[in-house]
Design a protein around this nucleic acid. Structure first.
Lengths: 168, 168
DNA sequence: GGTTGCGCTGGAGTGCACTCCAGCTCCTAG
DNA sequence: CTAGGAGCTGGAGTGCACTCCAGCGCAACC
């Protein structure tokens, strides 16, 4: 009985979703979902009899791929191109694959860049840690030339305040 | 003699750079460098007597920090805020450090996201590899239901072409 | 001494990716 | 039967981060 209910009447959670659910599920705004569809990023959205969007579960998986491409820096226009390759059936698979492989390469570059940039920021944090340690230790008895030294440090660390220096 | 020339007359490569050199060095366009300065991202640019920009080597290091922040997703407005904290001297160091630490956390999140998205794209590539292997193997003797099977695969893999299916 | 090249300025323009809106339809609850 | 809520459409608007441009100044070279 249960099984009849579950599998025949309502195939449960596998049913098409409304736009609101998809929005919550994916983190894309409702407006963005509609816009993606308009510009051709989401070809497989169906409609209920009253005109409302129904997203089959497949669409959800598809959206996640689109999100992955977008988040990793592929412009909307390129994503659309990738999707348009769907019309030509089998023949286009190698082309689509090549496109994805190019994207993978870019993601990897991006990761390297990100690692480097992280290192830069962390290095900068270290210099602050130093400056604070040395600066706050003796906060009240800094001789003038120590202050100058700190400024020089900061300068060397690449963070000059917009203050004239070297004069006076 | 050589050493006198090098160290006294021209401290060599350590001298201030023109905007063109900085542009080439950093990859930022000349326009962008000027614009960054206008909006307050580059406080330490000096001018030659004829009004042209001279970038001390410190500026170069500073620009690299700015680039790291920008590339890792910090909005220009936030970078400016960070820089404006420079005016207040020592007292602001903890705040600046905190700002950078927040940014670090975000970078790490971004890296995780990137890794996940890469996995999604790679998974998709795998499905294409499969489809191609199976599809191209028997390109000419595909029975109709095999074609259907491939389309279903593609659907499952999340890449439905904008073609009516299931009907007929 | 003209002209060529590089740089300067303030302001306008561009491209991208959404985001918002007015006015409509449909459905449901009271 | 009406009021409210969710969704729909086409089109306009927004925010960000540059990018381009006209008109000018200076310096060097021919």
């Amino acid at each position: 009985m249960d099984s009849v209910m579950d599998s025949v009447v309502v195939p449960a959670s596998q049913q098409a979703l409304g736009i609101r659910q998809v929005s919550e599920e994916t983190g894309l705004s409702i407006d963005t979902l509609r816009w993606y569809e308009r510009v051709g990023l989401l070809p497989l959205v169906e409609r209920a009899s009253d005109g409302r969007r129904r997203y089959p579960p497949d669409a959800l998986r598809f959206i996640r791929l689109v999100q992955a491409l977008r988040r990793t820096g592929m412009p909307v226009a390129d994503v659309r191109q990738f999707i348009e390759l769907g019309g030509g059936e089998l023949a286009n698979h190698p082309e689509r694959m090549a496109l994805l492989e190019r994207q993978c390469a870019q993601i990897e570059e991006r990761m390297v860049e990100l690692r480097d940039d992280l290192a830069v920021v962390q290095a900068k944090i270290e210099t602050y840690r130093d400056l604070i340690a040395r600066g706050l230790d003796c906060e009240d008895d800094l001789p003038d030339d120590m202050v100058e030294q700190l400024q020089a440090d900061e300068l060397l660390a690449g963070t000059l305040p917009a203050v004239p220096r070297r004069q006076r």
